[in-house]
Amino acid sequence: MNEQDYEAAKWALLHAHLVQATPEQRHLYVARSNYGDNHRALAWLADQPTLDRATALMLFWSVGGGGHAQYESLDEVPDYAHDTHQLIGRVQQRFLDGFYADHGIAFDPHHWDGAGPHELSASERERVPAPLLQAVDGEHAIDPFDEAYDADYDDGLPMPLVEQLYTLADVHIAWEDANPQTA
């Protein structure tokens, strides 16, 4: 399975999961996923009006929303960070516009184990719109770093899906090993 087919198959599995995932599962995915290789999935989630507003706020902070507030235009953003900066801007604007749903999830960017306003200087915090610095109230808080999830999830994905992704990766690696001139 060449790289293009592998990426397409991987996305098909992940997309199918995200489409049917509960708001809580999406929240867990955003919190625990590997931000270095999941831009496509996070961008897809950012485009969904069914995404919980608490999850959108976590997404904003998790991908560096606070740090990107320093840039006044895309021209100031390093080339390697353009896609992330545009994602942050989209999430920020949609959050402020009330685009995202309210499924009752609570999230406070000041009190969780991920990136948040506490990592910014006072001048950096001033550049972040006030609603993005405030907690989202909800009936239930989800602690995405609760050890109870460790046996059932990996990188925010349920273990049966993770096993499918590992199998897919094994097939891809075996193909690359058998076809070194095209890999």
Rank of each mutant, 00 (worst) to 15 (best):
S33G: 13
A46R: 03
H103N: 15
A46S: 13
F145E: 12
E176H: 01
L14R: 05
H82V: 13
D137S: 14
D79E: 14
R26G: 01
Q164Y: 00
A41R: 06
V91L: 09
V63T: 01
E176C: 10
H140C: 07
L161D: 01
A81H: 09
L133G: 03
D154N: 06
A31D: 07
Q134S: 10
A16C: 01
G114H: 12
E7Y: 06
A69E: 09
V91K: 07
G36A: 08
S123Q: 11
S73W: 07
M58G: 13
M159N: 07
D177G: 08
L133R: 12
T182R: 15
E163L: 13
A106R: 12
H118C: 08
D152T: 15
H85V: 00
R90A: 08
L168N: 04
T22D: 06
E24I: 08
S62Q: 13
T55F: 06
V128L: 07
A16F: 00
F107W: 10
P160R: 10
D5T: 11
G89W: 04
A115I: 02
D5L: 09
A101H: 06
Q134F: 01
V171R: 06
R127W: 02
L132R: 08
N34W: 07
T55K: 13
L161G: 02
L57M: 10
A9H: 04
Q25R: 12
K10G: 00
A41S: 14
I173P: 00
N34A: 10
E126S: 14
V91A: 08
Q4S: 09
D83E: 15
E124H: 05
T50Y: 04
L13K: 02
R125A: 13
R125M: 10
Y71F: 14
P131E: 12
H27L: 10
P129K: 10
P78G: 10
H140T: 11
Q48L: 08
Q181C: 03
Y166S: 03
A174P: 03
T22C: 05
L13I: 00
E163K: 15
L161A: 05
G138D: 09
A54H: 04
L18H: 03
V136L: 07
P78S: 11
P23C: 07
E3N: 06
D143F: 06
E126A: 15
Q4N: 05
A21T: 03
P180M: 10
L96G: 01
A122L: 13
P23N: 08
V63D: 00
H85A: 15
E176S: 03
Y71T: 00
E76A: 15
H111C: 09
A56T: 07
Q181L: 13
H15S: 05
D137T: 07
L157N: 01
S73N: 15
P180T: 05
H111I: 03
H140R: 15
L168E: 04
A31C: 14
K10M: 03
H27A: 13
D146T: 07
F145M: 10
P160Y: 05
G156I: 00
D97E: 14
Q93P: 02
H17E: 06
W44S: 03
G156E: 00
Q164M: 01
D154V: 05
A106G: 03
P131L: 11
G104P: 06
T182G: 01
V136E: 04
D108A: 14
M1Y: 02
E24L: 09
W11K: 08
D75V: 12
D113N: 14
S62A: 14
L57P: 02
E163M: 12
Y153S: 04
P131T: 08
